[in-house]
């Protein structure tokens, strides 16, 4: 279980997180929703240690993440970045097998390539993509390669940062379905940040809304339409009028 307690983070005078409290149970899929610039990505980066919180604690299975061995901690995670974040200088298969080619999870090159091709196949890409470079792929294909890289080392926890941003609705649907299938079949804990409501309904077991630096509402996705919270209602229905200011 991942538990965030009173997490705060400011960049200068901009207080992005103002005491976030959230629990993500093992094997469940949590989706964090919220407007642009509300700190969703910062929240995720705090958990991964890419950004240091100013206050609060993050625990994984009851242990403070700052007290754990960093490599062992990161080895439990997979992450799909918003823009894919694929390494331009490496062919697709080496991107996917990056973790399997170095460090504690290192395997023989041939085995790592085989695993990479299997993961590419799992996300709907043919083996001929393996030797191409990221710049030669479309946006949708890059997302799939990013997804294959996120699952290559069979992580226990997978983070998805805006997985459908920039994709057409059909490709967005394909990526959402893939995420749902993969998370279910791997039994992984998933945390997704998005403002795409179709992603929320396809991926989430539970939803949390981040607004004003705090978790405004959290609950099962089945209750999202009956949250009783005006902020959540405005956000999920995409209304310009409501408590959330359109100009932020």
């Amino acid at each position: 279980m991942i538990e965030l307690s009173n997490l705060s983070k400011a960049f200068g005078a901009n207080h992005v997180l103002r005491g976030v409290n959230l629990e993500i149970n093992k094997g469940t899929s949590m989706v964090i929703i919220g407007g642009s610039g509300t700190g969703k990505s910062v929240l995720l980066k705090c958990i991964l240690g890419l950004v240091s919180p100013d206050a609060g604690t993050i625990t994984l299975d009851g242990r403070d993440v700052t007290q754990q061995d960093r490599d062992a901690f990161l080895a439990r995670f997979g992450m799909l970045f918003q823009g894919g974040a694929l390494f331009d200088s490496l062919p697709v298969w080496q991107n996917v097998a990056f973790r399997l080619l170095r460090g504690s999870l290192k395997r023989p090159k041939a085995e790592a390539r085989e695993i990479a091709i299997e993961k590419l196949r799992r996300v709907g890409l043919t083996p001929d993509v393996a030797d191409r470079f990221p710049a030669e792929l479309s946006g949708g294909m890059q997302k799939r390669v990013g997804l294959a890289r996120a699952i290559a080392a069979e992580p226990e926890i997978i983070f998805f940062d805006e997985p459908t941003t920039g994709l057409d609705p059909i490709m967005a649907g394909v990526i959402n379905d893939l995420i749902r299938e993969i998370v279910t079949e791997m039994g992984a804990t998933a945390m997704t940040i998005t403002h795409d409501m179709s992603s929320v309904r396809a991926i989430a077991d539970n939803v949390a809304m981040l607004h004003g630096g705090k978790i405004r509402w959290t609950g099962p996705v089945s209750q999202l339409d009956h949250s009783g919270d005006a902020h959540v209602d405005q956000f999920i229905h995409g209304r310009a009028e409501g408590p959330i200011e359109a100009v932020r």
């Binding site: 970045f81 823009g83 974040a85 390494f87």
Partner: peptide
């Protein structure tokens, strides 16, 4: 460019 496109963050999450 790697930093702007989050490739540096990706390296860190891949234990590198």
């Amino acid at each position: 460019t790697m930093k702007v496109t989050e490739q540096i963050d990706a390296l860190t999450t891949l234990s590198t």
